[in-house]
């Protein structure tokens, strides 16, 4: 069953916490991965791959650069999940 927006944000928060050690409560829709959450470009790749597995979605390299905020990623996953 497709995940809801809240489930996706919660899932991303867990992933970002595990990969970059950011507190889950800091991961909010309006937060920028790089500027607010200190997720660098390589960690972002790890976040994307973990999100692909968790939400059964494909996020090609060309699309990764457009996912600036948690909201961008959430919207992308909502629209592309299987």
């Amino acid at each position: 069953m497709a995940a809801t927006e809240k489930e996706i944000v919660d899932g991303l928060a867990e992933i970002v916490n595990e990969i970059a050690g950011i507190p889950v409560e800091d991961v909010q829709l309006d937060k920028s991965f790089t500027d607010d959450l200190d997720v660098d470009s390589l960690s972002m790749v790890e976040v994307v791959v973990a999100a692909e597995e968790r939400f059964d979605v494909k996020i090609p390299d060309d699309d990764v650069k457009n996912l600036k905020t948690v909201g961008d990623a959430t919207k992308y996953i909502l629209e592309h999940q299987a």
């Binding site: 470009s41 390589l42 390299d61 990764v64």
Partner: peptide, 12 residues
């Protein structure tokens, strides 16, 4: 190199 694409391929 394209850093992110190479990193993803190299690791996973």
């Amino acid at each position: 190199q394209e850093g992110q694409a190479v990193f993803r391929w190299a690791v996973f």
